[in-house]
Design a protein around this nucleic acid. Structure first.
Lengths: 334, 334
DNA sequence: GAGTGCTATGAAAACGTTTTCAAAGCGGCT
DNA sequence: AGCCGCTTTGAAAACGTTTTCATAGCACTC
């Protein structure tokens, strides 16, 4: 590996001068600059980032913490983050936490020492105090999708409104008895979608019936039996709002196995606009989150924070960015 | 940030001793060790990885290069890689290359200078000489899924055999005219699946008819029209083998829209056992690759290479690890 | 009692940068 | 001639580790 001294020797100057040229300082003679650049090219020199990072106190690296990259929404988010980071000269470290505090803790410790420049956290839980300590200790942090009102930057969607819109659409379409396939309630976005569901019912003068709310027990597949039971009861709904697309797919399978037609006998609407949702039969109506753009926004925000911290410019107060959702109507609703 | 000298002062010893204790050297007095550990704990010390990496000439970081993390198989692979790396003290950098040489090149250059310890490359193309130069230059590299016979470690499945098994199963089930929904031929695994398809036909005395081979034009959706056309021609097949599950889903949609019953009128079999495949109606028969395990195997192999390079132990010759596939029969085949 | 070997420790060099400080060179001014 | 200010450059310190080398202490052996 050639280092800065080799380049200096080749160009007949000192290491300081090479450093100055390569980091774009202007107080260097044109001719010298030319020689240095030529020498650097000739030796195929590229600076050692570890040494640079050590000296500068930063690594140009950010960490993306997700529950699991296999979950439907995170690959797209990760692409947004990574594309944006790359364009700004940052590298992304991927952390699957499985929502396990020990794993998160290990990453945080490890990453602290790495001089990781900042975190995008999409795996926050209400009681994740080890994550809270990150921004309390002054690390740049942006929360993604899961937000609990803390004084920290965040990128989210208005889940209440989005769910409201979906349910409202069903009601306007003439549906009277709308069931809800509800994910883990401790996750804020599911809680919000639940609230939006209730609000839409209330605003349209429909009763809220707890028996129409299917609570996830263990995993997405639990909705298979829950749906079957509900449909066979005397409470058969004319529509089901699923709080995520995979849930909607399971619901549709259950309905299909009960011999019900979608949307003839019952409408189904999902949430997330996962890739799968346009592929199944019938194509699923759903609420679309701008996942890629959310990743982009989070990365931009984080990088801005990191830079402003380095520049010692006065920090702006943290703020929350609410991204727009779209209601995408396909053929699973009438 | 507290550093090793602070700990040394606190413990009343020299920095060397602290370093020795913390990196587990044995030639240090019990009592001294105790004092050092106590001081380290008291000061909440953790070593600066950049400094360590600079000194040691390694970063404990590996890079995972994928075409796009959004592609069906990569999230699972990424989990396998990341879990394994974490357990061995390595951190994973995620690189979406979009199969764009410029992006790959940028990453390689960047990562070279980072003293990235090694690469897992799942985005290799036949002409990726910039990637070839990685192992030619002595970087530890493991290829994943795409392999062209180069002298380098690789983790793959036997795509010829797997496709053979799938097609053979269809033939044994009485299918006589089997179509193929074939992905980009320049990718080795698609070429191999094609070869396996031909071999199975040949071994069973069935003719190979080029008109039954649907070639992807632009994207997965191109199979929608290709399938429709084929089905309406006088060549209507009694089964379709799709070289990936998303292709199978598109094929099924086309068949459904033509009013054909699956598997009554026509059988469909896929490849990959993507999450989606068990959810759709009817659940898709498919070939399962052990994606998670492939990620694990690639990471283990890479880490072994890295370690043996550091130990200066004589390098083993590169080898190829072939993982087993399973034929998973669901309800899309009769 | 001197030599030997072993353990435990510290000082200092090294890893490859960036940046501070000092100084050299030079033109222009009094 | 002396001084000032500007541009350009190099020497050296610093970032936080690990590791080499040297040495001190101590128990044995002859």
């Amino acid at each position: 590996m050639t280092n800065i001294k080799d380049v200096a020797k080749q160009a007949g100057v000192s290491a300081s001068t090479v450093s100055r040229v390569l980091s774009g300082k202007n107080c260097v003679n044109r001719e010298t600059r030319r020689k240095v650049l030529e020498a650097a090219r000739a030796l195929d020199y590229s600076p050692n980032v570890l040494a640079k990072g050590l000296k500068m106190g930063r690594s140009n690296t950010i960490a993306l913490m997700v529950p699991s990259i296999e979950n439907e929404i995170f690959p797209t988010i990760a692409r947004g983050v990574e594309d944006t980071a790359r364009k700004s000269g940052y590298t992304v470290i991927l952390c699957n936490t499985y929502e396990d505090v020990a794993v998160e803790q290990a990453y945080i410790n490890k990453l602290r020492t790495r001089w990781i420049d900042g975190f995008i956290v999409a795996s926050m839980l209400p009681n994740s105090d080890h994550i809270r300590s990150l921004w309390e200790d002054g690390f740049p942090v942006v929360l993604l999708s899961r937000y609990y009102g803390d004084p920290v930057d965040a990128v989210i969607v208005d889940n209440v409104q989005a769910a409201y819109d979906a349910v409202n659409y069903l009601i306007r379409g003439g549906h009277k008895r709308i069931a809800l396939a509800l994910g883990r309630k401790e996750l804020p976005f599911y809680a919000d979608r639940w609230a939006g569901y209730r609000a839409a019912l209330a605003d349209n003068g429909l009763p809220y019936d707890e028996r129409l709310v299917l609570h996830e027990t263990n995993g997405t597949n639990s909705f298979y039996h829950l749906t079957k039971e509900l449909v066979k009861s005397d409470l058969r709904p004319d529509a089901i709002f699923a709080t995520s697309d995979p849930k909607a797919v399971v619901v549709m399978r259950a309905l299909h196995d009960c011999g019900l037609r979608i949307p003839g006998d019952i409408s189904v609407i999902g949430f997330d606009n996962a890739y799968i949702s346009s592929m199944i039969e019938p194509p699923l109506s759903t609420v679309s989150q701008p996942l890629y753009e959310m990743g982009v926004a989070a990365a931009k925000r984080l990088i801005r924070r990191i830079r402003s911290r380095e520049d010692k410019t006065p920090a702006e107060p943290p703020s929350v960015e609410v991204m727009p959702t779209d209601l995408i109507i396909r053929r699973s609703t009438r």
